[in-house]
């Protein structure tokens, strides 16, 4: 059985990308970026703060970290809640001890269910990034456009109601989007999203509803990828982040400022046997003269001012 002849037709084979979201751009040939105080590397911590309903949804797909056993999956429900009750505060303590303000990618349901968390984040000067409604709020092709629009609005409304501030940034669950997502995010008034991992600095995307900036939140450097997926130790994680910092700081000297995203999960990194090593890493980063701890909004503002 041979393939359909159209399989050897390439309708998008031309200079540039095979879509209209953004043009090709080489990181090393752009105008150099500068952070405040001539800092070389923006350290961008993003904690994903999530509520997993014990009845999981598989449409359009089941979120990573979701329920796994037959009902009632107490073990995963409560282990995720451990992150929200305790792990989050260990991570916040680690950052607040060095005076760092960070981003927290928050499900709308967290704000609704646990307003005390939103208060704590506000008190620490941290930024809230909208992170869907709850962990059944996944996005992919197959989700109807109106449903996706409503999901985005519900997330933003819940977070604004609890915090008094409408989030500027968006992170999809598992960074998963439909073809409509960038347009719907721009239409909802969001300034930036974090889903596309194809770059190491912010860049602009174009949609029919206007522009939106993507600030790449490196998934390979996430605690989920290194510790849960690749099954490496927290010490190895810390070494990898230090190696990344050293490389980026060196590159910044020749090519302009760089960014080091730290994507963190309270129920992964906030465990007693991991948090000491993580605190050590945060202290080490603080001691680096070129390091600038920043929120997504800080990075966006500094980057935009230089464009």
């Amino acid at each position: 059985m041979s393939l359909d002849p159209t399989y050897l037709e390439y309708p998008h084979r031309r200079k540039g990308m095979d879509h209209a979201l953004y043009p090709y751009s080489n990181l090393f040939q752009r105008p150099q970026v500068a952070w405040p105080d001539e800092k070389r590397v923006a350290i961008w911590p993003v904690i994903s703060l999530e509520w997993f309903p014990m009845v999981p949804s598989d449409t359009p797909f089941r979120a990573p970290g979701h329920m796994q056993t037959a009902y009632p999956d107490y073990r995963h429900y409560t282990a995720r809640e451990y992150g929200t009750r305790i792990g989050l505060f260990r991570l916040l303590d680690a950052f607040e001890a060095v005076g760092a303000r960070i981003s927290v990618a928050c499900n709308g349901a967290i704000a609704t269910r646990y307003p005390a968390i939103v208060e704590a984040l506000a008190k620490g000067g941290h930024e809230i990034i909208a992170h869907s409604t709850d962990m059944n709020g996944t996005i992919a092709s197959g989700l109807a456009e109106d449903d996706e629009r409503a999901l985005i609005a519900a997330s933003l409304d819940a977070l604004e109601a609890a915090s008094g501030t409408r989030p500027r940034g968006w992170l999809s669950i598992a960074r998963s989007q439909s073809f409509n997502t960038p347009r719907l995010l721009a239409e909802a008034g969001l300034t930036y999203m974090c889903d596309w991992v194809n770059d190491e600095l912010p860049y602009r995307m174009a949609t029919d509803a206007g522009g939106i900036v993507n600030i790449p939140l490196n998934h390979e450097l996430s605690d989920r990828q290194i510790i849960n997926v690749q099954q490496q130790s927290v010490d190895s994680y810390a070494t990898q982040i230090r190696d990344a910092y050293d490389w980026l700081a060196g590159e910044a000297a020749a090519h302009g400022a760089r960014m080091l995203p730290l994507h963190l999960t309270p129920y992964i990194m906030g465990l007693p046997y991991r948090i000491d090593a993580f605190e050590g890493l945060v202290r080490w980063l603080t001691e680096q003269p070129g390091a600038w701890f920043a929120t997504g909004g800080d990075i966006l503002d500094s980057w935009s001012a230089g464009q």
């Binding site: 092709s141 960074r175 439909s178 889903d195 190491e200």
Partner: peptide, 30 residues
């Protein structure tokens, strides 16, 4: 958004597989 080959899926997720695609696009940009 490549056409389907019945013998092998291009992407693990329904198109667009944003992480799969963007991860590989990192090669050419960075």
């Amino acid at each position: 958004d490549p056409p389907a080959n019945t013998h092998r899926k291009s992407w693990a997720k329904p198109h667009p597989d944003v992480v799969g695609y963007a991860h590989r696009d990192h090669a050419n940009r960075v």
